[in-house]
Amino acid sequence: MRLDTLSFHVVESVMKLSECRSGDIVLITEIDSHVSGTLRLRELGVLEGVDLKVIKSSNPMLLHVNESRIALDRELAAAISVNYMVSASGNQTC
């Protein structure tokens, strides 16, 4: 995967993963690699171009990524930019 192919996702309604609600399905567009903990998230499969479902928007958040269920601090989730694919209310945005 080349990095420049990712850039086209970052066009509209960029939001932070920490702002998502339970049930949202989102596509990861960018991760701030300066935030500590993001490298471990990448290793676990939370990286650009991956879609995930927010199972719980509590703190810590609970994500469904590939086949894993990964819990992480909301603070850390704020380092992850996402685009909506399906919002919890059901309307498709992508």
């Binding site: 935030v35 990964i70 819990a71 992480l72």
Partner: peptide
């Protein structure tokens, strides 16, 4: 505080 990351295995 360091960030909290944990896997919930099936």
């Amino acid at each position: 505080q360091q960030p909290f990351i944990i896997e919930l295995p099936p």
